[in-house]
Design a protein around this nucleic acid. Sequence first.
DNA 1: AAGATATTGAGACTCAGTATCATTGTCAAC
DNA 2: GTTGACAATGATACTGAGTCTCAATATCTT
Lengths: 157, 157
Amino acid sequence: MAEPDRNAAKEKFLGFLEAKNLRITAQRRAIVDTVFGTDQHFTAEQLLEWAREKDSSVSRATVYRTLPLLTESGLVHEMDFGKDYKIYDPNYADHPNHNHIICDDCDKIVEFESDRLDQLENEISTGLGFKVKSQQLRINASCEEMKRLGECKNKGN
Amino acid sequence: MAEPDRNAAKEKFLGFLEAKNLRITAQRRAIVDTVFGTDQHFTAEQLLEWAREKDSSVSRATVYRTLPLLTESGLVHEMDFGKDYKIYDPNYADHPNHNHIICDDCDKIVEFESDRLDQLENEISTGLGFKVKSQQLRINASCEEMKRLGECKNKGN
DNA sequence: AAGATATTGAGACTCAGTATCATTGTCAAC
DNA sequence: GTTGACAATGATACTGAGTCTCAATATCTT
Ligand SMILES: [Mn+2]
Ligand SMILES: [Mn+2]
Ligand SMILES: [Zn+2]
Ligand SMILES: [Zn+2]
């Protein structure tokens, strides 16, 4: 969120690369600076575009190569929202277990965390003989309350 | 699961078509018979293959056209498991709100239902000013217990 | 039977993501 | 600083799920 968090995340990732004997290149710096310079969810193609503003030599291939490293490092979260592309969440380290509610009317996305939910998921999984590694909950909804307040701009208006 | 359920689902879908002034064609019959003739999750390409065994004239286009009708009718559930294709669940009507645990080691998929989970999701959503329309929870895990029993055939063996 | 129109299959197309490969850059050892 | 092993790169060809188009055909109502 704030500057120090971004720098911390960046340092962590550089450490991650070092630990895997991977090299720190100008392109990876541009990509990482971009990722930890935003709070927004983004797609691979958006990341390519933004990173190219910092270093025009960044290629699509390198973006697609770096994203798995970012997710493996735990600093970025990869998500499926039912579209034909993946969405990435750059602040995963700040709020690791959060989930999303999507308004089908206006595409608004709201994040939330719930310890009770995490606990319930663990309970259920354990009961079935599994050990949770990761989870993804997507709730599709309509923002009734916000609709009343005029915040939900229904496309079909 | 049993014969009558399958026929009920099939009849429901034909009724759904009629209500929308859509026509009942040989190809749609083949596709619907296939969908409600299995208990397995399936992909669009698998459905095409299977339906062609019943009616070789079924085309890819018709399968992709019929799947949205099946999901809109509520008889089939469309799911993202993080692959580059969608997975369809033909038994959705039988147990509408079920979720899935996937073993990352052996790809085993176990289904589960939880009223407590549904309730918690509603509670959270309402608190945020949303009204739930649908939800999808995916838990990625490793089947520890089953590994011990030799049921989890880890790919890296 | 006829007409209005929904549906079809074939194949061109889209687009996110992957694979290939010759060239370049990094970094540790000297 | 030079060197060298090899990781990383960009360009570009490719893949594969899903979509679009359109002329031909099938369904259903009257
Ligand atoms: Mn998020
Ligand atoms: Mn299922
Ligand atoms: Zn809304
Ligand atoms: Zn397993």
